[in-house]
Design a protein around this nucleic acid. Sequence first.
DNA 1: CTCCTATATTGACCATTGGTCATTTTTATT
DNA 2: AATAAAAATGACCAATGGTCAATATAGGAG
Lengths: 209, 209
Amino acid sequence: MYSHKVKKDMPLSKVENNKNEKLNKLLDTAFQLFTDKGIQHTSIQDIVNNAGVAKGTFYLYFKDKYEIQDHLLARTSYRLFHQALKASEKENIERLDDKIIFIINYIIDFLVHNPIIINFIKKNLSLGLYSEKISILMDDKELGLNELFLTEVKKRNINMPNPEVTLFMIIELVGSTVFSSIVKKEPLPIQEYKPILYKTIKTMINEDS
Amino acid sequence: MYSHKVKKDMPLSKVENNKNEKLNKLLDTAFQLFTDKGIQHTSIQDIVNNAGVAKGTFYLYFKDKYEIQDHLLARTSYRLFHQALKASEKENIERLDDKIIFIINYIIDFLVHNPIIINFIKKNLSLGLYSEKISILMDDKELGLNELFLTEVKKRNINMPNPEVTLFMIIELVGSTVFSSIVKKEPLPIQEYKPILYKTIKTMINEDS
DNA sequence: CTCCTATATTGACCATTGGTCATTTTTATT
DNA sequence: AATAAAAATGACCAATGGTCAATATAGGAG
């Protein structure tokens, strides 16, 4: 026989239940716990306890711990890229390489000043996962990073046999450098990498050929 | 009260017990299982059952599943780098950039023809872990990759403000590209990346300045 | 407001896992 | 042959992931 608790305390407001209340509570709680203890040392029981929902509810929305991690990463990355792209549009930057470097620099500086996100990445992600999500974002129609790059290369008649490859490699290069330098803080601070990083990117884009 | 089995079947040969027999059996079995099912779906019970040792024995040698993974990765990577370095010594390559590219090309081609290692990496590792181990190998005195690079840069009077940074970024660039292309097979085959990859490396080393 | 149906939520339950440690077996030494 | 030290064992337990029948809630029809 079941013996459920008679009644939980009533919520503060009568209809604060918007449609995805529990889903968002789970996401926010998981982000908090993952950032604090790392995904490895956070159990699903932990998450549901802190979110104030039953364990079964977790499995209504996510397959396992790693699926909620995917959601969190996609959400965080999207916001960051979107913000950087919007900022670049406000500036009036002539050259494509300068524009790409502006975006990259924006993201790097944002990360440097956001220890919470850094900590989340550090405690939970390895570059492979990060990189995978970034690849998905690149093809995202709404974000349009890939499309922007391909269009600009054509428009400017830049001599680049494989723009997709080039953009992908730039992202990989930046991602791995940022990851190693900012997230793991090894072997050197990001400022040391910037000159050679941006010079390399200019070479890869090769706008003056 | 305990009731241990009276006696296990005797081993085939009388003294096949070399000192690290069980350790090696654990490593080999774990490699097999990790390659087959992935570390996520392999339990320690699985490993010890297949290795034919007791569970307690596992904890004599490793802290947890992830420590055995570290050992396996270090072992595999070391062999690969060592082999590539030795091969490069046999060739008589004049320029430093050509030498570095030879080593990289050797490793890439080796990986392309070794589906077992690729599968192990694919099922178990993300680039971050891989990259971390590679960093450790770079500083490894016995392997001497870092030392070799720094020495050569000095000897040839190459204008490079931060050789450590440059080498590190080259490794990161190659690692992430290889990982994405060979391991995850996205978005394009490695041959597409090689020209731009090697051109970029030449720019970074910048031997003709 | 009352009844009804569909949907969301719950938490007791169970199989499996990670990890410990008293006991046993093996090896080395005298 | 006796003894001590080191290696290996597996029964045991707390904690975890995941399931699902029971329960609560929301929305609509009359």
